Computed example of a mutant assay.
Amino acid sequence: MSFDLFPYLTSIAFIYIYGRLANHFAPKIYCYFLNESIVWQKQIEKPRIFLHLIGLSFMHLMVYSNSSIEITGLLIQFITWLTFILGFFACQFTWTKKFEATFTPQLKRSTARSSENFNLSISDLQLIQLYNELVRFDLLNQDLTTVEDFNNVLLKDWKEHNSKLHLKMDGPSCREFYEYFIRTYPNNSLTMKNLFVTSKLVLRADGKSYNYNTIKNAPIRTAVSKHNESLIKIFRKLS
């Protein structure tokens, strides 16, 4: 009795592909049914879905062929395996940075660096991902800070808008947030003082301004903030 490895490996591949799809789209579906705002990037999500439809179609077709047709000959088996693998990699490609870089529209920003701007070097997709992660870990007041507010505060000149960024973090957590941010996006000249004091755009959950000395001296009083694990997970996912 011969042992057919094909069904077992294909089952693992399907679990991986569908699991990753569920993990990515489930929060969006959840927000849809709760009538909450959904961050949907058509330029990247539509190609992702299209490639998954193609890849999964080939994968399912090869599984069907293997189970219903009596396959004989090494050439037929090779074609079946090769087609399934190509379908799998078509799906997997959509989760790579190369795919995101290809389909993410780059915002044309002025090369002039303003003294009243954070001058961040960060893509629109990265900003949206950061916003979603902060909301997911309840570190940002979503009711007072929309995605548009988030983008306005971090990208535009401070006097060009009326948006504010309301964080649900204490001083030590803000210090760690700043440190993780500049490590994850090193090509930035963002300063802690500009972020929390000079701009007057980043506020506490109660709407008051942060005390710069509290944030600056946080490591002396608190070695690890209460949101340390959440911040590690957020920036690990973004890196």
Rank of each mutant, 00 (worst) to 15 (best):
R183N: 14
F177N: 05
K42P: 04
L127A: 01
A112E: 14
F118N: 04
P186T: 15
K42G: 00
L120M: 08
H166T: 07
R48N: 09
S65A: 13
L56M: 15
N187F: 11
G87C: 09
V197I: 10
P7H: 10
L125T: 03
D124V: 12
A26P: 01
Y180T: 04
I12E: 03
L53M: 14
S114D: 07
S11P: 01
G87F: 06
I128A: 13
I69N: 13
F84G: 04
M1A: 08
Q41V: 03
G55S: 12
L120R: 00
L165Y: 03
T104R: 12
S230G: 05
F177S: 01
I220T: 12
I71Q: 10
I44G: 03
L21T: 07
S123R: 08
I215W: 01
I12A: 14
F78H: 02
W81D: 09
Y18G: 03
N213C: 06
Y30I: 08
E70R: 07
H227D: 14
A223L: 09
F6G: 07
P47T: 05
L130Q: 00
S65R: 12
L165V: 02
A218V: 01
K226E: 15
L231P: 01
I79Q: 06
Q92N: 08
L9N: 07
L86K: 02
A223N: 09
D143E: 12
L51Q: 08
Y16E: 14
K208F: 00
N132K: 11
D206M: 10
E45Y: 12
E229M: 07
N187C: 03
K28Y: 01
Y18C: 06
L140Y: 02
C91M: 10
D4I: 02
F103Q: 02
T191N: 08
H52A: 15
I15N: 10
K156D: 11
Q126I: 00
T184I: 13
R48M: 15
G171P: 06
F3P: 02
H52E: 10
E133I: 00
L144D: 05
F25C: 05
I234M: 06
E133Q: 11
L86H: 01
S115C: 06
K164A: 07
V63W: 01
N66E: 11
Y185L: 11
S110C: 11
A205F: 09
Q106I: 15
E229W: 03
I15A: 15
V153C: 03
I38Y: 05
R175N: 15
T222P: 06
F196L: 06
S68M: 12
I215Q: 07
K97Y: 09
T146W: 02
F93K: 01
S57V: 03
V197N: 14
S2R: 00
P105M: 05
Y212V: 04
L53F: 15
Y64Q: 07
G19L: 09
Y64H: 13
N162D: 06
N151F: 09
L195V: 03
E176Y: 02
L120Y: 05
Q41M: 12
I38G: 09
N162I: 03
I38Q: 08
V39R: 00
L134V: 05
V224M: 11
S121K: 15
I38L: 05
V153A: 01
S239G: 08
